[in-house]
Simulated scan of single mutants.
Amino acid sequence: MKDLDALEHMIGRCALKDRAAFSELYSATSAKLFGVILRVLNNRAEAEEVLQEVYVKIWRNADRYSTGGFSPMTWLITIARNAAIDMLRKRKGAGEQMPEGLAEAMPDAAPGPEAQAVQASEREKLDGCFDELEADRADAVRGAYLDGETYADLAARFDVPLNTMRTWLRRSLLKLRECLSR
């Protein structure tokens, strides 16, 4: 809980345009947000560009963060995810394809063995928590936060109203957070 308080404090200081706090916030959260963006876009160069845009949005909108709601990390991840989805829409609208051979020329960003072991352990715990959710709720959370589907797309896929989908996702995230904190 101490980390959440620290993030809230940094965001609050960013709202006051404290550059040192912004630098601290970037150091504390950029790797996680980059991972979220990269997972949605599957393109390192675009993910780096979107990450920059995300931190500009955070700097400009830090005063909109409200303590007592979702965790500060959820707020940051939502900004990152939405920015990544916007980039996907631009990409689809432009009909662009990645040039052949470009993916092979990029350096391997795969984690080392130690990081893989830690990730495997965290993944097991997260999978266990997903198993505690109803199957359709778990699929909706995966679609929204791992695959970058919009709430509207998910509502259509599960044949529920948009507000119902938002409720499913909010409640599911709360259950996941509770499970992960055990």
Rank of each mutant, 00 (worst) to 15 (best):
V54Y: 01
T164H: 07
S23M: 07
V56I: 13
G143T: 02
D5Q: 13
S66R: 15
Y145Q: 07
A45L: 14
E114K: 14
A6W: 10
E100Y: 10
K57N: 05
E8F: 01
L180V: 02
V40Y: 11
E149H: 10
E104F: 09
E134F: 06
F22Y: 04
E104K: 12
V36N: 11
I79P: 03
I85A: 07
E100K: 13
A21D: 02
L4E: 05
V40E: 11
M98D: 09
R123H: 06
S23P: 09
A94N: 12
G148K: 13
M1F: 03
Y26T: 09
A84V: 09
R170L: 05
F130P: 08
A84Y: 10
F158E: 00
S71M: 01
V160I: 06
A94Y: 11
L38V: 05
Y55E: 02
D3Q: 08
L16D: 05
K125P: 01
A94S: 12
Q52Y: 11
L16S: 10
K2H: 07
Q119M: 15
R91T: 13
Y26N: 11
A138S: 11
T167S: 11
L133T: 00
G128W: 02
T29R: 08
L126C: 06
E24L: 12
T150N: 07
L146K: 06
L88R: 15
R166G: 08
